[in-house]
Design a protein around this nucleic acid. Structure first.
Length: 304
DNA sequence: CGTTCAACCTGGGCGC
DNA sequence: TGCGCCCAGGTTGAAC
């Protein structure tokens, strides 16, 4: 599910956890606990409790919650990161999860540190922080997501330049030419390669190539520099617009923002999921083909 | 290098 | 109602 715009929306949606400490971490296992968690859940829970959150990052389609290295409760900590990959159906929520049985990680946060002076944080109606302010949940219906607790080395291995290319939000035509210019792969398949460019998934690859007017089957090495520039420009602008719209909620509506609202960018989709529908530009039928075992939607008249 | 396939999972939709 | 099949936003590793 989540591609760059959805993951960035998640990141922004949970940014209020910065400055809080983890009070409790549990890994519910009502069903078979198949999700990949390293280290093992019991060990990880122990490592998380007491840690202070200093930042929430996004690397491509991954979230990394950063913990500081200050001493706490007599222990000396190194900086660490909780790297979460939502994969197909993972969500980070400050709201009530859609179903209780697919909660994979349940984090209770300590209360925010009181600010000095008269401008303290607004109290809730009850005078206590609400549950929304104190609980962060990783929910994942299919259970394909992963959760890893890593040190600096591990972060580099999981999210470093050996694993992820330049972020799609700032990709340039020059980046594309350097990384894919001599490749014989179909351009749509190449856009999904996270080592080439980080953050593009199946929905946005289709939408980008529609707006760029490029046939998804085109071998990369046949694209001119101007066309790569066009693809890069469309990528930056389309993803920025999708973030403004808080991502795309499609199909069964699994994707939600951290406070449980739908994304809106699906209203702007032009080809994804629209096989047989008339193209917005030429009225011809949108086609669906399969590339690398995944659906590709495009307009054969507008994309060449 | 590249592609293809299977695997990891749950659940919605469809045809019969 | 139920069964069987296909489909789904992602990633990885094996085989060729």
């Amino acid at each position: 599910m989540p591609e760059l715009p959805e993951v960035e929306t998640m990141r922004r949606g949970i940014a209020s956890i910065v400055g809080r400490r983890i009070a409790l971490a549990t890994f519910p296992k009502k069903t078979r606990q198949t999700i990949t968690i390293t280290p093992r859940p019991r060990t990880l829970a122990g490592k998380l409790v007491g840690r202070f959150i200093v930042a929430v990052h996004r690397f491509g389609k991954r979230i990394a919650i950063e913990f500081d290295g200050t001493p706490n409760c007599g222990k000396q900590f190194q900086p660490h990161w909780l790297v979460i990959e939502p994969r197909m159906t993972g969500l980070l929520l400050l709201a009530e999860p859609p179903t209780p049985q697919h909660v994979r990680l349940d984090i209770r946060l300590s209360q925010p540190r009181q600010q000095a002076g008269p401008h303290v944080a607004a109290p809730t109606a009850t005078g206590r922080p609400s549950k929304r302010d104190s609980q962060l949940v990783f929910w994942d219906r299919r259970g394909l997501g992963t959760v890893r607790f890593v040190d600096k080395r591990g972060l580099l291995a999981a999210c470093g330049p050996d694993r992820l290319g330049p972020d799609a939000l700032s990709i340039t035509g020059r980046d594309f030419v350097a990384r894919l210019g001599r490749s014989s792969r179909a351009v749509k398949v190449a856009l999904l390669d996270q080592k080439a460019v980080a953050g593009i998934g199946n929905i946005y690859a289709a939408e980008i190539l529609f707006h760029a007017g490029v046939d998804p089957r085109t071998p990369c090495r046949l694209l001119t520099v101007d066309r790569w520039k066009r693809i890069a420009s469309v990528t930056r602008h389309l993803l920025a617009k999708a973030i403004q719209c808080e991502g795309s909620t499609i199909g069964d509506g699994t994707y939600r923002t951290a406070d449980n609202r739908s994304g809106q960018f699906q209203l702007y989709h032009r080809v994804y999921g629209q096989k047989g529908m008339p193209c917005h530009a030429c009225n011809g039928p949108i086609e669906r083909i399969v590339q690398a075992q995944r659906s590709t939607f495009f307009c054969p008249r507008c994309q060449w």
